[in-house]
Structure formats: C-alpha cells, structure tokens
C-alpha cells in the first residue's frame, strides 16, 4: 500500500473533514490538530497529513507534494488550478454573494467592488455584462461599503449574520460553496487504488 499525503485546511473546515474521514472508517487519532505540528504521520493507515492554510491546499495538491486535499469550492473557483475534483464532501456549506448598503445602486461611472475573490467577482460581473473595478482586500470585507470604499462586496455568506450586524444586505447569490476532495492528476493515476478506495468509503459513509 503506497503512502498517501493529504493536505488539510487548518481551522473551521478541518474538524468537519477529519470527522468525515473517521466516519469513513479511517483509524485516526482524536487529538490531531491540538499539536502545533504541520506534518502529522498516521503510520498504521499509511497516511500523512499536511496542515495548510485553506487557500494553499490546492497549491500543494497541484504541485504533487500532496496527493489529495480538501478545499473549499470558493478557493477552487478563485485559483483555477489543475487538480481533479473528485467528491463533494457537503461540509462547510455556505455561498458567495454580492452585498452592499440597503437601497443603493452601483456608481454609474466607476462602480467599485471590494472582495477577497477578485477572479470570482470579475467573472460574475463580466457575465452580467457590467464592467466594474475590483478592489482586493484580505479580510473584514464588510467595512468597504460602510466607509465608502466600494459600492458592493463579493464575499462568503454562511448565516448572513455578519452582513446584518454591519447594516448590509445581500443582493445577488453567485454560487454555492462546499468542501471538495481534490487530487493531483499524477497521484490520481499512480495511486489510483488508494484514492478510489478513499472516495468510495467517503461516499458510502455520507449516504
């Protein structure tokens, strides 16, 4: 049995994804994320976990230093990396939407959109036939319309509470987001047995 390297997103998604693997019958220790280690070996399953920032998971997988990984659809859409998307894990459900101050229109001359997802945002407005100026931010996107930096934001919405608390309303829903199991194209061929076994077990345990 060949060793499998799995890139896992640290933080919120980790717990859910990890529980899913356990549910699929993988014998994994319960206290994995508590240590500050970035690489964790599980010898009896021949699995090695790499703990990475969620945005970086597809990078590791694309370059083949991780065979498979768990990544949000938002990250996959934003980065367009050449990885195989094998399974919808249906965890960490949320969606990407546009939002802004209530009852406002976009500026006619230079509509501005603030976002962590420049590619998704610009694709969306292109599709709509509107040319907008994208302003890239790294967090607290809700600030932008409140202080007049942008007319709209494009961001992840899970419950909508953050929007409401900051006096913003949702305008358009762009795309639903869940976590996906992704694979490196070469690993998909060279370690096909292990990867297909994992997909099957995950699929079965989700039903």
């Amino acid at each position: 049995m060949s060793e499998l390297t799995i890139a896992m997103p640290k933080g919120r998604i980790f717990e859910e994804a990890y529980a899913l693997l356990q549910k699929a019958g993988f014998q994994l220790p319960d206290d994995l994320e508590e240590s500050r280690k970035l690489i964790v070996e599980v010898p009896h399953e021949r699995i090695r976990f790499i703990l990475a920032k969620p945005m970086d998971v597809p990078v590791y997988v694309e370059h083949g230093v991780a065979d498979i990984g768990i990544a949000g659809k938002d990250v996959l859409l934003e980065q367009k990396r050449s990885v195989h998307e094998l399974l919808d894990l249906k965890i960490s459900q949320c969606y990407i939407a546009t939002a802004g101050l209530p009852n406002t229109l976009m500026n006619d001359i230079a509509p501005r959109v603030a976002t962590k997802y420049p590619k998704i945002a610009s694709d969306f407005y292109k599709e709509k036939g509107e040319q907008v100026e994208i302003i890239g931010l790294n967090g607290s996107i809700e600030l932008a319309p409140m202080i007049g930096l942008a007319d709209r934001i494009v961001d992840i919405v899970s419950t909508g509470r953050t929007l409401t608390e900051n006096g913003l309303v949702e305008y358009e829903r762009i795309v639903d987001v869940t976590s996906r199991l992704i694979a490196n194209p070469v690993s998909y061929r060279l370690k096909s047995e292990r990867i297909r076994d994992m997909v099957k077990r995950l699929k079965d345990s989700m039903e």
Binding site: S82, H84, E85, L86, L87, P185, Y188
Partner: peptide, 9 residues
Amino acid sequence: VEKNMVGFE
C-alpha cells in the same frame, strides 16, 4: 478535461 467529477454530476 479538468476531471471535475463533482461538476460533472
């Protein structure tokens, strides 16, 4: 081409 099985389904 992308082997996007999720998207395919």
